[in-house]
Amino acid sequence: MTLGSSPRDNRRSAASASASASVEPQEPAGPRDEGPSIGRTLATARLNAGLTVDEVSVATRVRVPIVHAIEEDDFTRCGGDFYVRGHLRALARAVGTDGDALIARYQATHTDEPIPLAPVAALEARRIRADHGGRPNWTIAMVLAILAVIALIGFNLLTGKPHRIAAGSINAPSPSAAASAPAASPAGNQPPAPTSSAAPIAAAPADKVTVKLVAETGTSWVTAMDGSGNSLFQNNLDEGKDQTFTDPKQIKLVIGNASAVHLYVNGKDLGAAGKDGEVAHLTYTPGDPQAG
C-alpha cells in the first residue's frame, strides 16, 4: 500500500499558495516632487532680482512681516484666500515671476474654491463665516489697517515737507524773483518759456539736483528719496506718465523696470535708466550727473 497526499490535501496546498501570492506586499509610492514651494519660489526670484524684503514691501505695499511669512509658506497672516491671491500677484509682479502659476498652486493646495469670488462677494462671505463661526472678523481688521495706513501716509505728506515739484514747473522763479515781479495777472509770476533750449529740464538750477523720470516703454515701480532721507515718491509710474524731483543735496532712486524709464538729470538726457528687467539703484547730486 503506497502512502500519498489525498486530493483534499492537494487542494488546500494550492489555495494557500494562491493566497500568499495575492497578499504579497507592494512598495508604497514615494512622494511626488513638485518643485520649490510658493514661498521659496518668491524668495529665490527676489534674490535673483537683487531686491530686499523692505524694497519689495515698498513696491507692493505689502507689510514686511507678511512678506516674510509668505516666503516661509505661512499664509495665515494674510487674512484669507482673497488677500493671499492679491499678495501673491503683487509680489510676483515686483520680483519678476509668474503670479498666475503661483495662484494656481495655492488654489490647488490651500483652498477648495474653484472660481475666485468677486471682491465684494468674497468679503461678504468671509464676514458671514467669521460672525457665525466665532472667529475674528478679519475683514474689519484689514479695513481698519488700510485706513490707518492711508491716514499715516497723508500725515507724512502734510508734515514731511518733501522737495518734490510737479512736472513742468521747474522753470518757476525763486521766491525773491516772484516777489519783485509785477502782479498784473495770476500768470504774471511765471517767467516766459525758454525758446532756445531743447532739453526737458535745461533751466534746472545749478545749485540743486533735478531729476525727471518719464515712463516711455512700459510701467515701472519707482522709489525716490531726497538728501535728508525723506520719501518723495513710492508708487508705480505708468507708461506715458512722468515725475520730477529736486533737492539741494541729492536724489536717490530705485527703479524696478529700468529699461522702461527715461532719465533727464540736471538738464541732460541720460537715456534709459538701465537694461530690460534690471533693478536700477541711482543717486544724483548737483552738477554733472554721476551715479552714486
Rank of each mutant, 00 (worst) to 15 (best):
G30Y: 13
N236L: 12
I70H: 01
F245L: 06
R89L: 14
A177D: 13
P182C: 14
V149A: 12
K212A: 13
P136E: 02
R127V: 06
D226C: 01
P119Y: 12
V222R: 00
I103M: 07
D238Q: 10
G227E: 04
I255L: 03
N257W: 02
V84W: 00
V209R: 00
N156F: 12
G271E: 07
P173D: 12
A130S: 15
A92C: 12
G229N: 14
V209C: 03
Y83K: 02
T285G: 05
G96T: 01
G229E: 14
P36V: 06
V64N: 04
A193F: 11
N156T: 11
Q107Y: 10
S174A: 10
M142Q: 06
L42A: 06
P205H: 07
T109R: 09
W221Q: 13
I251V: 04
F82K: 09
D276P: 01
Q290Y: 05
P286N: 01
V149L: 14
I103A: 12
R8S: 12
A104M: 10
I140A: 10
W221N: 13
A224Q: 02
P25L: 11
K252H: 11
S231K: 10
L3F: 06
G39F: 03
D238T: 14
G267F: 14
A130W: 03
R32A: 08
L213F: 01
R127Q: 12
A151F: 15
L237C: 04
N257C: 05
K212P: 07
L282Y: 04
P205Y: 08
A177R: 14
A291F: 01
A204H: 01
S6Y: 15
P182A: 13
D269E: 10
S6K: 14
V279T: 03
A187E: 10
K249T: 12
L213R: 00
L232V: 07
R61T: 07
E239G: 08
A183W: 14
A29L: 06
H87S: 09
S231V: 12
L88G: 01
R135A: 10
K241C: 03
R127E: 09
A172D: 08
D226I: 00
S57M: 09
E113Q: 07
P173N: 15
A260V: 05
N257P: 03
L88I: 07
R11M: 15
T159R: 11
V261D: 03
P186T: 11
L282G: 02
F233L: 11
G79V: 04
